[in-house]
Design a protein around this nucleic acid. Sequence first.
DNA 1: TATTATTATCGTAATATAACGATTAAGTCA
DNA 2: TGACTTAATCGTTATATTACGATAATAATA
Lengths: 112, 112
Amino acid sequence: MTARKSKYICCTESPNDDITINQKTSDELALLAKALGHPVRVHILKVLSLKESCICGEIVEQINGLAQSTVSQHLKILKEAGLIRGEIEGTAVCYCIDYHGLKRLRVLIAEI
Amino acid sequence: MTARKSKYICCTESPNDDITINQKTSDELALLAKALGHPVRVHILKVLSLKESCICGEIVEQINGLAQSTVSQHLKILKEAGLIRGEIEGTAVCYCIDYHGLKRLRVLIAEI
DNA sequence: TATTATTATCGTAATATAACGATTAAGTCA
DNA sequence: TGACTTAATCGTTATATTACGATAATAATA
């Protein structure tokens, strides 16, 4: 990619005309954002944020009107993205926010 | 929803046991995050960030290997989410980041 | 006015996501 | 051991997303 003049006023000439963009962090950010990209999953994070930690069953109660299997699926997506963690406690599973993941999301957005 | 004792150690009792969560902001955050939840769209934002503003055609060039119509679709999604703006300049359209939208995303994440 | 340049939209196909009920798995307790 | 509790997984269906090529729309220009 070579720098070149643009005939468009809006396209400012800049030393950044030769662009190199970190694809890896783009992918990482996209994955995190995608995990957050559903109202129910945002809601789950808020529940966990307010309650510090919470067993799956109580989360299902908080998410009114959705089947347990559906909530479980959302929890899985959040977990795989690194936004929450789950710890087995007896027959239950206790979920909490993974603040490393959440911070990483903030950092990656800030870097845009 | 009434406050109740939990038999689980992990589930801390807290004054937030009666949870009220703002569904509207959850939806808003989910929409913004969803728009960001694709590597190509993150890439587009980075291109715009580095170049300040950019005509659609140059963005298409930067996104190697995707058809013009596909990139146009991604631009539409970003625009509808309020993450970019487009200004017609002759036959071209000049896109730039909508920093209000991006800031709103940051704020909503920070509020989780 | 006809042509060119640029971008948006349309129609379509392949794939992914979201939701459900039913079932499985694994730990607890009588 | 057998029943119960809790959560994950499976199979399925409906819907949404992503990508493409083709076409339409609009402004600039010859």
